[in-house]
Each structure stands twice: as structure tokens, then as C-alpha cells.
């Protein structure tokens, strides 16, 4: 049962906002703005550096939670909320972890659905908050039966 995972979190993983990864991500969302990719534009900006698009943080490694096996298929992404202290800077180090903050079930027209709430957090090297991404994942009855939760 997912209830037993509420409060579980991964160990922090060191990540870097890699310049090449930012460019590839910006291209994939059709937003190759100079503030993301042109070094001169970055230097002249208030950030003195290029920044990353807001949703770039999904490329980071957040570690794994022991014993948690989410199915690779059949999950539905219901909601996503980001909170930022500031934009992420290209080449900075970000320390990331994930935690399960809630799990509940609701009965709907397609049977009983599970709602898993995850928080992915990024901090700087001093442990100061940079961003948080809350994700609500819906686990359908079919998938719940397959993984017997």
C-alpha cells in the first residue's frame, strides 16, 4: 500500500544545470530564447548568467525511495505545481530529493482511483531552498490491480 510510504524521502542527489541540457530542453519546448542559450545575453542580464526554463528541473535526478515501485505505464499526471525562489542558473549545482507527502483514494466512474502526491525539492549547496515541484499522480483501478495495491 502507498499509505505506508507517506513521509518517505530519497537521499539528496547532486545535480548540475548543464548548459547542453538546458539548450536541448529549451529547443524541445520551442523556446530557444537567448537568455537560456546565449552566453553574452546571460552575462549582460541581471542574473549575470544564463538561466534555465521554469520546467527544466524535471530533468534532475531526485534519487529513489526504498521499496517504492511505481509502474512505468498507466499513470496519469493530474496536477503539477512549481514554486521557485528564483530562476535556476546555468552551471549551478542543485541538490535534489523526492518525498511522498500523501496518498488517498477516491471512487469514480472508472472504479477506485489512487492519488499519489510527490514533492521534488531542489536546494543549493548550503541547503537553502531553490524550488519545489508538487506532482499529483493518478493511479487507475486497472493499474492498482496489476501492482496489487
Amino acid at each position: 500500500m502507498f499509505q505506508s510510504f507517506i513521509g518517505a524521502r530519497s537521499d539528496k542527489v547532486k545535480n548540475r544545470v548543464e548548459r547542453g541540457a538546458v539548450k536541448k530542453f529549451a529547443a524541445a519546448i520551442g523556446d530557444l530564447h537567448p537568455i537560456y542559450i546565449d552566453e553574452e545575453t546571460g552575462r549582460k542580464s541581471r542574473y549575470k548568467q544564463n538561466i534555465a526554463p521554469p520546467t527544466f528541473s524535471r530533468v534532475f535526478d531526485y534519487g529513489t525511495i526504498d521499496g517504492l515501485n511505481l509502474p512505468a505505464k498507466g499513470l496519469i499526471h493530474g496536477e503539477q505545481t512549481y514554486t521557485f525562489k528564483r530562476p535556476l542558473l546555468v552551471e549551478e549545482e542543485v541538490y535534489c530529493y523526492t518525498e511522498i507527502t500523501d496518498y488517498y483514494e477516491k471512487s469514480g466512474k472508472n472504479g477506485k482511483m489512487g492519488f499519489l502526491v510527490l514533492h521534488n525539492t531542489g536546494e543549493d549547496r548550503n541547503g537553502e531552498f531553490l524550488f519545489k515541484a508538487k506532482q499529483v499522480v493518478i493511479i487507475t483501478e486497472t493499474v492498482r490491480k496489476e501492482i496489487s495495491v
Binding site: 530564447h33 512549481y82 521557485f84
Partner: peptide
């Protein structure tokens, strides 16, 4: 991710603090 580009060009004026979808 695409939606955020409505705001990209205003980077000197501010930043996205929360983005909820």
C-alpha cells in the same frame, strides 16, 4: 513547458514564482 514561454522575454522584470497546472 511550452506554456512558460509566454513569460520568457520579461526576464529582466521578474520571474515565475509559482506555476500551477
Amino acid at each position: 513547458g511550452n506554456l512558460s514561454k509566454l513569460f520568457t522575454s520579461y526576464y529582466e522584470e521578474g520571474f515565475i514564482e509559482t506555476f500551477s497546472i
